[in-house]
């Protein structure tokens, strides 16, 4: 799980690994993150989620080594 911007601020880390059961989905990984970092819940409604660098749905299936990233609202330029 990779954290950016405000999500990195509230977790205090760039990222971490979670152990999940076989056939877990993105939502399961998110639950782990929100459990580990209750302060993330304040951001929850604004977050988009990427799976291996693509915007994903919460019901997407995970496999070993997948990267899930929490993306707060973006602004480049």
């Amino acid at each position: 799980m990779i954290y950016f911007a405000q999500a990195r601020d509230v977790t205090g880390i760039k990222g971490e690994e979670f152990r999940l059961d076989l056939k877990s989905i993105v939502k399961d990984a998110l639950s782990k993150a929100f459990e580990a970092h209750p302060k993330l819940s304040a951001l929850e409604s604004s977050l988009k989620v990427a799976l291996n660098e693509e915007i994903t749905r919460e019901d997407a299936e995970l496999k070993d080594g997948d990267r899930v990233a929490l993306l707060p609202p973006v602004v480049g330029g």
Partner: peptide, 23 residues
């Protein structure tokens, strides 16, 4: 639509994230 975030640094060294839009 790029995974980029920016925060502004104000006088006194305080930082604040610039309000963005969902990617």
């Amino acid at each position: 639509s790029f995974p980029i975030w920016k925060r502004e640094k104000f006088k006194g060294g305080r930082y604040a994230w610039v309000k963005g839009t969902p990617i």
